[in-house]
């Protein structure tokens, strides 16, 4: 009986989902647009900051380098709820940045997603640089390459890894829910994204609508990953 009920929900969700998409439902479009906008922005920002930082850390020798890398790696495993809690405390009315009045805004959601994606971009870049043959790095040194030149050529060596890093960061922020709810408040037309919309629909018992959103989320994640894979440099993509 339970299995039949589940199948009914999934079937109904498919119908509802296609209905929403074909009908260009304004609620769906708004939530999807916002999800893509914030996730893409946080992924892009984490890439712009994290990758160069990772490249510089990977090739530099400084005191506590191992400690720094350990901290970054630990950041990759940060529980999103804890990130949300910290951001909420910092940007709450009594927080250090309380005066900015950012809590329950898109900016707060962006910041929490950035904190989740940044260690990932930085840590995975450091790991990818570790895979570049030592002789190649020494060759760059022997040419007299400075930090920025070396970073450029290292980035070119790990370009496929950089695409994987982008995918991983995007996948992690677009599917994030704990921190987004905590700092965004799941406000309709303001901070509601696909994941928090699913939570809202489940809360009110609209399982079919929730599943519809879930399908769209999965389709979006797949589409973005597929697009990135197709434009990957190299032979016929697919790494």
């Amino acid at each position: 009986m339970l299995a039949l009920r589940s199948m009914d929900i999934i079937y109904s969700a498919f119908i509802k989902c296609f209905g929403l998409i074909i009908g260009m439902d304004p609620y769906l479009i708004e939530v999807t647009k916002l999800t893509l906008l914030i996730s893409a922005l946080s992924t892009l920002t984490s890439f712009i900051i994290g990758v160069p930082a990772g490249l510089v850390i990977a090739q530099s020798d400084f005191a506590f380098k191992r400690l720094a890398i350990s901290v970054i790696n630990a950041g990759m495993g940060l529980p999103p709820v804890v990130v949300g809690l910290v951001v909420a405390l910092l940007f709450g009315r009594s927080g250090v940045f309380g005066d900015l009045d950012l809590l329950y805004t898109r900016t707060a959601v962006f910041i929490s997603q950035l904190i989740i994606a940044l260690p990932m971009a930085c840590g995975l870049t450091i790991a990818a640089c570790g895979e570049v043959p030592r002789a190649l790095k020494l060759q760059l040194d022997s040419f007299g390459a400075g930090v920025y030149q070396k970073s450029f050529y290292l980035a070119r060596e790990i370009k496929k890894s950089l695409i994987v890093i982008t995918m991983a960061a995007f996948g992690s922020v677009i599917s994030e829910v704990g921190a987004v709810i905590m700092v965004g408040g799941n406000i309709l037309n303001e901070t509601r994204v696909l994941t928090t919309a699913i939570v809202s629909e489940v809360r009110v018992g609209n399982y079919d609508t929730a599943l519809g959103f879930a399908f769209i989320l999965l389709a979006l994640t797949f589409a973005v990953n597929y697009a990135v894979t197709v434009i990957t440099p190299g032979k016929k993509s697919g790494f």
Partner: peptide, 13 residues
């Protein structure tokens, strides 16, 4: 100066 290493490390291009 220039250095020729034991391996033949070529860049990915």
């Amino acid at each position: 100066m220039a250095i020729l290493f034991q391996d033949a490390p070529l860049f990915n291009c």
